[in-house]
C-alpha cells in the first residue's frame, strides 16, 4: 500500500486506506462510487465479517472464557463457576492424559510430514510421467480421500480386528495363537491407525501435488534436459523451486491434518488406551456424558494456540506472494 494515495488517506476520517484512496479519486473524478456502490461494498465486507465474528471469533472467545470456569454445560454460568487458572494448572500438572495426547499429536505430525506426505508427493511425480494407466492409478489412490474418515476407520477396523481381522488371519497369527492386538496394544495402536490415516492422506497429497505438477511449464523440463540434468536433479533444482506455493500449501495441509486428527482414533476406541489426542480429549471432556465443558475448553485453547503456528506461516506466505 506504500504509494502516494496513502498520504492522502489519513486526512480522510477513519476510513481504511483503500477506501480513502477511492474516495479521494472520486472527489477528483466526480463520480465512480454511487451510494448504491457504497451499500454494496458495505454489504460485501459486512456479511463475511459478521459471519467470521459470529461463527469463528465468537465461539473462540467463548471457549477462552469457558476455560476459566468449571461449568458443566447445564444451567447458567454464575460467579461461582469461575475458578481462575485451575483447569490449566491441572491440565499441565495433574492430568495424566494431556502430555501423552500432546505427544501423540506430535507423532502424528512427524509421521505425516516424514512418511505420508513425501510418499504422496512421490506418487504424484510418478503419475505425472504419463505412464500407461495413470488415470487408473490416480483413481485408486484417490479413492480413500472420497471416503469419510468414519468409513476409513471402519474399514481398517476390519483389517486389524484381533481374532477375525484380515491381517492376523492372513498371516496365520490366529491359528498359531500369537495374536497381535493391533488396536488394543497401546504400544502399537497409534502406528496402526497412522497407517490407516496415511492410506487416505497419501491420496489427498498426491492429487494436490499432481495438480501443481501439471501446471509446471514443460519447457522448463526440456531446458533442464538439454542442459544435461538428470531426472533427480531436474526435480530438486528446477521443479521443486517452481512449485514453492504448492509446497507451502502441502506443508500447511499436513500440519492441519495432524492437529485436527480425530475421527479414526475416535471410531476405533473413543481415543483411550494409547490413542489419546488433543481433539479427542476436548470431545470426551466437553461433549460426552461427562460434561466437563470448562476443562474441555481449556484443552481447546491450548490446541488453538498450537494451531496458530501453521496458520501464521500460511498467511504470511500467502501475503508475501500476493505483495
Amino acid at each position: 500500500m506504500a504509494n502516494p494515495t496513502t498520504s492522502v488517506a489519513p486526512a480522510r476520517s477513519q476510513q481504511a486506506p483503500e477506501a480513502g484512496a477511492l474516495v479521494a479519486r472520486r472527489k477528483r473524478r466526480y463520480t465512480l462510487l454511487t451510494r448504491h456502490d457504497k451499500i454494496l461494498l458495505a454489504f460485501m465486507v459486512g456479511v463475511p465479517l459478521t459471519l467470521d465474528l459470529v461463527l469463528i471469533w465468537g465461539p473462540t472467545v467463548a471457549s477462552v472464557v469457558l476455560s476459566f470456569t468449571n461449568w458443566s454445560g447445564i444451567g447458567p454460568i454464575t460467579d461461582k463457576n469461575f475458578i481462575g487458572f485451575k483447569n490449566y494448572q491441572f491440565m499441565f500438572t495433574g492430568y495424566t492424559l494431556f502430555w501423552p495426547a500432546f505427544l501423540h499429536n506430535l507423532t502424528w505430525l512427524a509421521w505425516l510430514t516424514f512418511i505420508a506426505t513425501p510418499l504422496g508427493m512421490f506418487f504424484a511425480v510418478l503419475l505425472d510421467r504419463e505412464m500407461r494407466g495413470t488415470r487408473i492409478y490416480q483413481s485408486v489412490f484417490f479413492l480413500p480421500v472420497v471416503l469419510s474418515l468414519v468409513v476409513v476407520g471402519f474399514i481398517w477396523e476390519l483389517q486389524y480386528a484381533p481374532t477375525d481381522g484380515f491381517i492376523n488371519n492372513a498371516f496365520g497369527l490366529v491359528n498359531s495363537g500369537h495374536l497381535i492386538d493391533w488396536l488394543g496394544n497401546p504400544r502399537i495402536n497409534l502406528f496402526a491407525i497412522l497407517v490407516a490415516t496415511s492410506w487416505r492422506h497419501i491420496g489427498y497429497i498426491m492429487i494436490l501435488y499432481l495438480a501443481g505438477l501439471k501446471s509446471v511449464d514443460p519447457s522448463l523440463r526440456e531446458a533442464a534436459r538439454v542442459d544435461g540434468a538428470t531426472e533427480v536433479q531436474t526435480f530438486f533444482s528446477v521443479i521443486l523451486p517452481v512449485m514453492a506455493p504448492i509446497n507451502v500449501i502441502i506443508v500447511v495441509v499436513t500440519a492441519i491434518e495432524a492437529l485436527r486428527a480425530f475421527d479414526i482414533a475416535f471410531i476405533i476406541n473413543q481415543g483411550k488406551n494409547g490413542l489419546e489426542l488433543l481433539s479427542i480429549l476436548i470431545t470426551n471432556n466437553s461433549i460426552s456424558e461427562a460434561s466437563l465443558v470448562g476443562f474441555g475448553s481449556a484443552i481447546a485453547v491450548i490446541l488453538l494456540v498450537i494451531s496458530i503456528g501453521p496458520i501464521v506461516l500460511f498467511l504470511s506466505r500467502t501475503m508475501r506472494t500476493l505483495a
Binding site: N273, S288, E289
Partner: peptide, 19 residues
Amino acid sequence: RPDFAGPNGMQGFLLKFLS
C-alpha cells in the same frame, strides 16, 4: 460420576492396569 467412569477416566485407567 459419568465423567469419572468414562473413557478418559476409569475406563482408561483400568486398561492401563490391564496392559
